[in-house]
Structures are given as C-alpha cells and as structure tokens.
Design a protein around this nucleic acid. Structure first.
Lengths: 228, 228
DNA sequence: TCAAGTCTATGATAAATGTCATATAATTTC
DNA sequence: GAAATTATATGACATTTATCATAGACTTGA
C-alpha cells in the first residue's frame, strides 16, 4: 500500500503541513479508491465520514436545481481535497461529485482530519486558507454569473479550463466536456453554448474537433470576457 | 470601555469559543468603532490588519465589476464577523463593505485572532465552521444565479430579506434598500427590478411604501421562486 | 454491423431581459 | 423652501437568451 509520506500530490494541498507522525497514522487509516469516468463519488445530501484526497483524474462538483438541471459549481483535480466542507461543518454534502476522467483518490476518515486540526495549528491554518480561497473564488464566480453575459462567461470558462487543466501535446485542452457540461458551467442552455462555441470558432478564438477543444486566441477571449 | 466578556453579541459568533483569558486580552486590544449609514468600512483591494465584529447595524458586501456596476454578494448584521477571510488567508480584501444602517463594530487586531487559532482548537474549529457555512451559501447562490430567472431570484431575495432581517412593528422589512441595491442583489438592471416589484405588488405578494417593503404572501413568493 | 440512443448543430420563434427616453416623486442642498 | 439632484416608475424598443423542432454525426451495445 502506498504511503502518504511518499505521496507527491500531498505537496500540493493542506496535508503538507502534517508532521511525520500524523502522516504515518493517516497512512494507516486511509483507503485508496479508484473511480471510473462517470462514477458518482458522492451525492448531494449524502452523509460522508471522511475526505477524499485526489491523486489523479478530474471530477466535477455540481448541484441539481428544482427543474432537474445540473449546475457545475467547480472542478477538482490532483491535489484537491473533496468533501472537507461537509466534514468540517458536520453537515451532509451539498454537492454531487462525478468523475470526468478515471480517478484515484485516498479516503481519509474524518477522525484523522479533525485530530490533526486539534493537534496541529499549522495544518489548521492551512486548512482555513484553503476554505477561504474557495470562498473568495465562489464570491468572484457569483459576481461574474450575475453581471456578465453568457458570451463573456463562456470566454471566461475557456480561459479557466486552459489555465486549470492545461493542454496535451496537440494543444487541446486536457479536459473533455460535453456541450451540455460546458453549458452547465457557464449557466446557460445547451443550444446557446453550442451556438456561441461555433461563433468563437468562426472568429478564430478556438478550434473544435468533436469534443476536443483548443484555445487559439487567449488574448481575444480575455478581451471578450471583459466586454470588448 | 465595554468588555468582550460581557458582550451579548459574542454568543452569536465564533468568539463564543474563546476562554475567559483570551477574551480579556482581546478586550484590551480591541477598538470600538462607529460607522454612519453610507460609510465605507473597507474597500476591495485594501489590506486590513484585523477583523470587525459587528455589534449593531447592517452592511452590504459588494464587488465592483469591470463596467462599474456593483454586485452585492451578501449582507452582515450584529454577530457577524467582517474581514476574517482576508486575515485568515493573508490576502487583501476582495469585497467592499458599506454600512446600510448606523453601525457599531469592534475592531480586533489580526494577532489576537491568529493567536487564538493557534492556542484554542475549539475556536479554530468554530471559525472553520463559519467559513464553511459561508462557502456552502456562496455555492448555493451561484447555482441560483446561474439557473433561476430574474423573477425567481427577486422572489428569493424578498424571502431572504424577511428571514434574515425580520420586520418592524408595522410588518415592514427591517432593512431599507434602494431599488438599485435590490437589483444589485438579484443581479439585474434597476429598471427590471422596479418593474418586477410593481408586478409583485399588483399580484399581492408584497406591499411597497416608498423604500419600505412588506412581504404579504411569503408562500406565494416561495412558489414563484421555485418556478410556479 | 446495424439499430437505438445520444450528442451536436442550426433554424425559427418566443420569451426574458436590458437599454434608452421621459416623467414624476422624493430627497438633498444651499 | 426653492432649486438641484437623485430615485422611482413606466413606455418603447433592442438585444440576449431560451425553447422547440429537426437533422445529421457520433457512440454504444446487442
């Protein structure tokens, strides 16, 4: 079984603040889980008893609204911690998490995290920074969602996906989404997203090959996202 | 000078987890500040070196977007803590805070808060719960903003204002907002907000007397907010 | 491999929302 | 308290966005 102490991904998240001893106990208590593309890791309303430390893969965090439509609230990838909000606030999860690529994640029981918070102020503060960062981003998204047009938001999304997930050797985004999922990030109807993607392609901002997507003119997209 | 130990408001926020000793030091270090309606407490981009524990009054937290429009992200009232995100993540503030009513708030230097986090795990965990709660709310707002119509969001806002700020003896909401501010909460144009308020009034959901606002049919508004 | 299902694309149209113009009401300032 | 400013209200219209319909492309599974 892999040891947390040797896990590289740990350097990218709050677990970096743990002591060697704490890591050892965590390593003993953790489970290594695998998920296939499409697997649901947990669902809105579920009670979970641990956090998931993502090693590889990508997942989406979404909320189902009254009329059955999915709103993607954010993505997570290697290094991110899933479910910490629920654990920390001792509430059921409020988002559904679905794998978008095959994933490997370590399940760390609640107790380990809460103990570490009690014992290790550095970890505690680091954890707070993570939540605070998420909160800052959520507020920024809220403001954008409220005030930008669909076109501007789609441009934002293209840039965000490139910056967050990078490109493969051919320059295509290293994340594959359906048009419906793109629409659900942007907060619009699938048809509207499709239409605007075609427009972006026509204007030379992006390239489309099936579901594969390449950002060609990031500066242009940036300008567009700011309303020019 | 008032003592934190005897402050009732403290019972409503994370400071309730502090020990008597911690409260004593905090009391010594804090400043009591007063703000008039309209005063800006801090601005997007400012560096602050402490948090504000609100005793009385109401303020709005907003973000200015590229085209100069204000987006109200949330409100705070007695018991809430302002600026903690910036302190915890050691970043400038990302929101502008403006008093909507005369306010009294205690300014607590950063050091006191960070020390308490290091020393007192209960406070630390309580603090985390607060941030996590804010994050949950922000995600929910994001999803609503993306998927609900302006009319639905306005209905939500009316209910939210009633639940959060209550009513005076005449049944009017205990918060006074301009139409522009209402629009800025909902995320729409001022004229659209005005039009829909008139419609709500005509349909008997609310009563309008100048800026004073009364919710008459909360159930009706709730149904409307869910798309009926 | 083909049939069924899903996804993407696009036109036509409807509905929602924003913008501009204008008028009146309320508030502020001198 | 009158003039100036700001806030509210509403009409007319433009623009954006959603919805419905249809068709072809792509996947998937028997």
């Amino acid at each position: 079984m892999s040891k947390c102490q040797q896990c590289i991904i740990r350097e990218f998240n709050t677990l970096r603040s743990l002591t060697a001893d704490e890591l050892k106990t965590m390593s003993k208590e953790k489970d290594v889980l695998n998920f296939k593309k499409g697997d649901v890791i947990f669902k809105e309303g579920n009670a979970i008893n641990g956090v998931y430390c993502v090693k590889h893969g990508i997942c989406k965090l979404s909320k189902l609204n009254a009329n059955g439509k999915e709103q993607i609230v954010r993505f997570m990838k290697g290094g991110d911690m899933l479910g910490y909000r629920s654990i920390l606030s001792d509430e059921p999860v409020t988002l559904t998490v679905t794998a978008l690529k095959d994933m490997e994640a370590c399940y760390i029981p609640k107790k380990e995290i809460l103990d570490a918070i009690k014992e290790n102020p550095k970890f505690s503060l680091d954890m707070m920074k993570t939540v605070c960062g998420d909160l800052r981003d959520a507020n920024a998204s809220l403001s954008n969602m409220a005030q930008k047009s669909v076109k501007e938001r789609l441009a934002d999304t293209m840039i965000f996906l490139k910056e967050t997930f990078g490109e493969d050797k051919d320059g295509y985004l290293d994340i594959v989404l359906t048009r419906e999922e793109i629409a659900s990030v942007v907060g619009t109807a699938t048809e509207s997203a499709i239409r605007l993607l075609s427009e972006f392609k026509k204007k030379g901002f992006i390239e489309l090959t099936g579901k594969r997507l390449k950002v060609i003119d990031e500066v242009g997209l940036l300008k567009l996202s700011q309303g020019f």
